[in-house]
């Protein structure tokens, strides 16, 4: 009889082992579920892309509005305002679908400085374009010579390549007239005076009334060069550049006016307020 009792203990041990096994499995499974189910809240926030889009389309809309308002040759402020009003209405509606509020405070047109953003506090020294193969149009107009610096605060525009300066023009105010100095890397090629306008590729000044030898094409042809502005805040005026890049693409930049609207956007996660200087007509000539 005792022999039989001892055999039963094996069943007890086996039962105990199964019990422990179940406990171990339960704890381990629970642990796995615990580890894999504390998922982080989704933090995919796409509003940053919406902001980048808003900046881009607002800039382009201002430029398009300006071109639209200039269709007749003179600036039509009513058309300009209507275009922007329509844009604001449609843009705010479109962004609302993505859960973003969009607003911009329209800004009046200003005469631009030669700084990077066209504002008087903009970056003085900047590059208009790089990898230029040829320039077809290079016009400067300074309608208010009193806003041009004197000989110690010259506005300088240069064409440079990888080996240095190819060509430069310096402009400064001398008794209410624009004093112009044209130079290459080592020598002064000519000095002129003008009242308001300089056509560098056309070798004329003051809207063609006078000719001048600016030597721009002669000194830049065959080079891969950049056009740079130095001391841009020392002059107020308009500029137009166009031509072709080394890649064969056309480039164009014109600045006749500048606006500085304030764009405000907000979503459930982000709020941003930024100024957005836009050159008009900019690159959409």
């Amino acid at each position: 009889m005792r022999q039989l009792d001892e055999n039963a203990q094996l069943l007890l041990v086996a039962g105990f082992a199964v019990g422990v096994g179940i406990v171990v499995l339960t704890i381990m499974l629970n642990n796995v579920i615990y580890a894999s189910n504390i998922a982080s809240e989704s933090s995919i926030d796409t509003s940053r892309y919406e902001i980048a889009n808003a900046v881009q389309i607002t800039s382009e809309s201002y430029q398009d509005a300006y071109i639209y308002a200039m269709e007749t040759g003179t600036f039509n402020n009513t058309a300009f305002e209507e275009y922007l009003h329509s844009y604001a209405f449609m843009a705010s509606g479109n962004f609302a679908i993505s859960g973003i509020t969009f607003n911009f405070e329209n800004n009046t047109l200003h005469d631009p400085y030669f700084t990077q953003n066209g504002l008087d506090n903009g970056r003085d020294n900047w590059t208009v374009a790089t990898n230029i193969n040829s320039t077809d149009l290079f016009l400067l107009e300074l309608p208010d010579v009193s806003k041009l610096g004197n000989s110690s605060e010259k506005l300088m525009i240069t064409a440079t390549n990888s080996s240095g300066l190819l060509w430069a023009i310096e402009l400064y105010n001398s008794g209410g007239k624009i004093n112009i100095t044209v130079r290459d890397r080592t020598t002064i090629l000519g000095t002129y005076t003008a009242s308001s306008q300089v056509n560098i590729t056309g070798d004329t000044k003051d809207f063609g009334s006078d000719s001048a030898a600016f030597h721009f094409s002669a000194l830049t042809t065959g080079h891969d060069y950049s056009i740079n502005v130095i001391n841009g805040s020392k002059a107020l005026g308009y500029c137009t550049f166009s031509g072709s890049m080394s890649s064969g693409e056309q480039f164009g930049f014109a600045r006749h006016k500048v606006v500085d609207p304030r764009v405000t956007m907000s979503s459930s996660q982000i709020y941003i307020k930024r100024d957005l200087p836009v050159s008009l007509p900019g690159g959409r000539t």
Binding site: E41, S43, Q116, N117, I270, I272, K273, R274, P277
Partner: peptide
């Protein structure tokens, strides 16, 4: 990046508030 790109383009960021939960 927003500040850097704004600065490069001559623009200025006046205010950014980004929620973090």
């Amino acid at each position: 990046t927003m500040v850097g790109s704004a600065d490069d383009s001559g623009s200025q960021i006046m205010e950014v508030k980004y929620g973090l939960s």
